[in-house]
Computed example of a mutant assay.
Amino acid sequence: MKRRAGAAFSAILLAGSLLTPAQAQADSASCRDVAIPVRLAGLLPQTVHGRLCEPPQGARTVQVLVPGATYNSAYWDSARTPETHSFRLAMNKAGYATFAIDRLGTGASSKPPSALLTAFTEADVVHQVIQAIRHGDLGSRFDKVILGGHSLGSAITVLEAGTYHDVDGVLITGLAHRINPPGALIVLGSFIPVALDPVMSLRGLDPTYLTTRPGTRYAAFHAPGPDVPGMTAYDEATKDVVAPGELLDAAALATVLPYTRRITVPVLVVLGGGDVGLCGPLATDCTSSAGLRQSEAPYYSASARLRTYVLPGFGHSINYAPNAPDYHRAVSQWAGTMGLPR
């Protein structure tokens, strides 16, 4: 079982690395790994790993990207068909720098006891990352910072932007204020303790972290989009963990507290039109971008200048949609019209 899982993961990574010459030439960004020292809850020294990628001509604006539950920074930079699925590549080609991070507990970042992690403590950590960027600690200086998130990462983004007011724009994907309970149960039903996963149990993590049961990624995060075997397998092979506490206060934020009203910079909200946990007649209107705006507008102040975009035909993890470039273009166009320069 372990040997087969390892072989499958190697095949996926190999397939992702075999880019055509045109694809390789198109990705002219300069990328490097960065480790930023932070303090969890103001006390415990930790390290946040991120990957900084800049267009060859440089950039005035950097997008700090926070992944969702059971994802890490790989979500933003797919190694499989990156011309379609890599948000990082699309933004670099549009002239923006990107800094995709691993939340604490995931990827190459520190792995503290899961009991110490909540969406609020993660937001404080992201704030420290943004301050490091503002101070030039990454080696590059930027005039503007866009903070972007996916799902849980969007909840963390809302908390950071609404608390510290240190970013110039906010991108929220895979998060809205009205939940579709039957669909949300599909997502929550996919979670298991990391110790029960045949591959991830070997990482030596705190056993109270959660991941997803093998074979559930499509139903939880891709449906009703096409079940592309290679893309679903890539999602499974690169999946990560989440702390239970992160889910609890993130859920409270999404369904109870109008914390988004505290955001005072431009906001773009993006959802997949078939997001099972959020979309439905009695939940969020995902039938159109205008419908989504009508659903979400009451939760934002006028200073957010709320814009919305619905990517039709796919579920929660929209970077893996076949039509993901449409949403990538919508993001870069929104940033430009909101005065966030390349």
Rank of each mutant, 00 (worst) to 15 (best):
P45D: 13
G277S: 06
P82G: 04
L271R: 15
M1E: 11
Y300T: 05
K2A: 05
A7L: 08
D77I: 15
V38K: 02
A26V: 13
F221T: 09
S154A: 03
T106P: 02
V194N: 04
P56A: 13
V129E: 06
Y75C: 15
T47Y: 00
R4P: 00
T118V: 04
I263V: 12
R203L: 15
H49E: 09
V310Q: 09
R80N: 05
D33G: 15
T118N: 04
G50L: 12
V66R: 00
Y309I: 14
D240H: 08
A97N: 15
V242D: 00
T208G: 06
C279H: 04
A119G: 09
H135S: 15
A24S: 14
A184Y: 10
A176H: 06
M338A: 05
P45K: 00
I12V: 07
Y300L: 05
L268H: 04
Y209W: 06
G107F: 02
L65S: 06
D137P: 03
E83T: 13
A304L: 02
R305D: 10
G16S: 02
L282A: 04
M200S: 08
E246W: 01
A251M: 10
V331I: 15
H177C: 11
L278R: 04
N72K: 00
G162A: 15
G225L: 07
R305Y: 08
V228Q: 07
P67I: 12
R32Y: 08
A8V: 00
R178A: 08
V167M: 06
Q46F: 09
E296N: 01
S28E: 10
L268I: 00
N319I: 01
S73T: 07
F314K: 05
E236Q: 11
V310Y: 13
L278T: 09
A335N: 05
T232S: 04
A41W: 04
V228M: 01
L44K: 12
R213F: 01
A184D: 11
Y299W: 15
L306Q: 05
T47G: 00
H328T: 15
S289W: 12
D206E: 05
L248R: 07
P229F: 03
A243Y: 10
P244R: 13
G315L: 02
A74N: 10
V187M: 06
V66L: 03
T216W: 05
G336R: 13
D240T: 09
T70Q: 07
N323A: 07
S288F: 05
A41I: 14
P21E: 08
T212W: 04
D143V: 04
S154R: 10
L247S: 06
D285H: 13
L152V: 14
K144E: 07
I130A: 01
D168I: 07
V270D: 13
T84G: 08
L247P: 08
P312Y: 12
T98W: 06
T106Y: 00
D285V: 11
L147Y: 07
S78H: 03
T212H: 14
A24T: 12
T47N: 03
L19I: 10
L44C: 13
Q128R: 10
P182Y: 14
R103Q: 13
P214N: 08
I156A: 00
G16H: 05
D249Y: 14
A94Y: 08
G277A: 10
A176P: 02
V126W: 08
N319W: 01
A321N: 12
G277Q: 03
